[in-house]
Write a protein that binds this DNA or RNA. Sequence first.
DNA 1: CAGTTTTTGATAAACTGTATCATCGAATCG
DNA 2: CGATTCGATGATACAGTTTATCAAAAACTG
Lengths: 167, 167
Amino acid sequence: MPPTSRQAAAQARPRRCRPGFAGPAPDFAALAASLAGHGLRTTAPRRALFALLAGHPQGITVAEAIVAMRDAGIGQATVYRTLGLFETIGIIYCVHGADGRHRFIPWRPGHMHALVCRVCGQAVEFDACGLQVLERLLASETGYEIEGHHVEVFGRCPACRTRAGGT
Amino acid sequence: MPPTSRQAAAQARPRRCRPGFAGPAPDFAALAASLAGHGLRTTAPRRALFALLAGHPQGITVAEAIVAMRDAGIGQATVYRTLGLFETIGIIYCVHGADGRHRFIPWRPGHMHALVCRVCGQAVEFDACGLQVLERLLASETGYEIEGHHVEVFGRCPACRTRAGGT
DNA sequence: CAGTTTTTGATAAACTGTATCATCGAATCG
DNA sequence: CGATTCGATGATACAGTTTATCAAAAACTG
């Protein structure tokens, strides 16, 4: 749902696939630009969370973010707010593992998707170019105007397959 | 109503994607067979939830199920339990929509997916055969053992496109 | 640097999902 | 057909997760 109350004044335009984020070296300039472009301010907590995400290209859970941010003196409410904000302005996206927990992954150039290991949670990204073909096909066959898609593939990573055959 | 359920001939296999479920006419015999095949009992709440699901091929949320079942005098704990059960024995599967909420969808033959209109909610189904190619490619490239996928495509249906141009 | 508005952190509160347990009932057996 | 057994249910309590509130602090503007 859209943000409530007064501090929602800055309407963030729902945007997808903003390139240029994530990676070993957090691009704070890009962060600031994206925030400014949505009329939002660049603050220390936002930078900190952005850096945390940049250091975890495979994504983090809310709980992990809360713990990490707490060590930096940042409250959990801010973590929730900022994650939601980042998702809204399109610098991260949210998936849920098979365990049902949300995981936030930085957007990478090219509209990547995550292949998540059900056992250890490690995620590998892949492009879903095939999906764009599917979208076009669907559009022409159904007359729908396709606005987006959400893909989730899950399985077991090589390490987990080796470690335990069963489960 | 204990009618003649001799048609339950087919023994239940612990298998996913069992066909024959869902649809306008809930196949209670198939439900009973599947439950019995897992050593589970056929009860009124399970039949009721099964019928509810059959009436919503596009899936329902937990909240919707709880409300609907409450009207039938069924407790929320039972709804959670039964949904989890149905998922375990493979007559429904769980996804989370772009809004982050879980949605339970009856398995259909052929593994169809839904294209949902964001405005009116009307859904069109399509097969995602392209996805199977993608899965195989991912498996060979990443070494993951692919166990499943979830695809959600959303947009605006022709009627809603015509009716209102906005948003 | 002062003013204005957004953002934050702490707390409370709401919500979601799970565990417990006495009771009920489906399947089985006599 | 009635008795028995053990799984299933519903109500409640409980734990965990997410959101709302609001005074205080911080960020942008000029």
